[in-house]
Amino acid sequence: MLLIIGGVVFMNFFTKKKEFTEIIDTYIAENNYEDHIQEKEILYDWKQGSYYAKVIFEDEPENYYEIYVETNSDNAYVIGYNTAKNEEISDKEGKYIDY
């Protein structure tokens, strides 16, 4: 019984990760960012209970961006951070932020 419950929990995480990854990849493709990405990593946010992408672009290595998917939606939004200052940046400082 414990094995079945563990399998169901694992499959739920796997399915959610795949779903969020597809939405994030679609957002990246729609905005033509694929050729500008230096590094992309899909991570899990335990506080929000969802996945997000941490992306570093080749032309802005001093910044990293987190792409989140809105709850109960297929819309993505971006938050940018400056690596050196470890603080959030505005749309004037990061060209990949779209509000």
Rank of each mutant, 00 (worst) to 15 (best):
V8I: 14
M11D: 08
N12M: 09
F13A: 03
T15I: 14
T21P: 05
I23Y: 01
I23E: 01
I24T: 01
T26E: 14
Y27R: 05
Y27Q: 07
A29S: 14
A29T: 13
E30Q: 15
E34M: 10
E34Q: 15
D35N: 15
D35S: 15
D35A: 15
I37Y: 01
I37R: 03
I37K: 04
E39L: 13
E41N: 14
D45C: 10
D45R: 06
D45W: 05
W46S: 14
Q48K: 15
Q48A: 13
Q48H: 11
S50Q: 15
A53V: 07
I56G: 03
F57T: 09
D59W: 01
E62T: 11
N63F: 04
Y64L: 05
Y64S: 03
Y64V: 02
Y65L: 07
Y65D: 11
Y65S: 09
E66V: 08
I67M: 07
Y68M: 02
T71N: 13
T71R: 14
N72G: 02
N72F: 12
S73A: 07
S73V: 02
A76P: 06
Y77A: 05
V78A: 02
I79G: 00
I79E: 06
N82A: 02
N86S: 14
E87D: 11
I89W: 02
S90L: 08
D91M: 13
D91R: 10
D91Y: 09
K92G: 01
